[in-house]
Amino acid sequence: MSKKTNVLPGFNLSLGYTLLYLSLIVLIPLSAAFLKTTEFSFSEFWQVVTAPRVVASYKLTFGASLIGAFINAIFGLLTAWVLVRYDFFGKKLIDALVDLPFALPTAVAGIALTAVYAKNGWIGSFLEPNGIHVAFTPVGVVIALTFIGLPFVVRTVQPVLEDLESETEEAAASLGANRWQTFYKIIFPALLPALMTGFALAFARAIGEYGSVIFIAGNMPMVSEITPLIIITKLEQYDYTGATAVAVVMLVISFLLLLAINGLQWWSNRRNAEAIE
């Protein structure tokens, strides 16, 4: 496909560079992790990665990341919508605020969130007397992961929304669609691929997050330990092989989930294309 339509030369060269670059930056370090685990026999490997404490941490890490990404998908879409469709005083400022979680060192985010949600913090002092515990519980983990994932959804949806022409909406309205129909039949399908990409990015980022979570999680075994902490714990005991074994499991699950999300995106793109034809 690329051969017959490409006007610019250099496919072979650029593909070569792409592969070299990916290998150097991504594949070689990752394969080192896989190689390290070969020091284990399979049953040893299995025993390490399925220990109850480790399994509890997978559930928390992937569960909280998924919830965080969902919250971001909804509110990120809303934020992007407001930033693109409306003009108001201070819009540029809000636009810049969205990127703050990108720029902030994660430890700073973690300390700030903990300070706010602890029982003597601004928000925590209202929640705790009502029996709502956020800091040092899995809820705190979800909040930290939502915080760091927000820009991903906004920044992927925003440009697509900007490119969406208002004529299509006007056409839909003139053909008799009500506002709700215009949204879910015309706008939403066009945004869905970008939204899914944003969701996937926020999710992937959350899975690997350590700095911001560690302060607010409480780190109780079986309850609020995230998988990256388990890896650090193993390193702390000089158990390099065990640490990489858990890391490899995380890697494989993350890769499969991202592959599934990409597949879903491809499928929705194709369905969209068919619908338009």
Binding site: F136, I214, M220, L229
Partner: peptide, 11 residues
């Protein structure tokens, strides 16, 4: 009786 297990002594 421990509600929070920080990762280090300073924490």
């Amino acid at each position: 009786n421990v509600p929070v297990l920080d990762s280090g002594a300073r924490g």
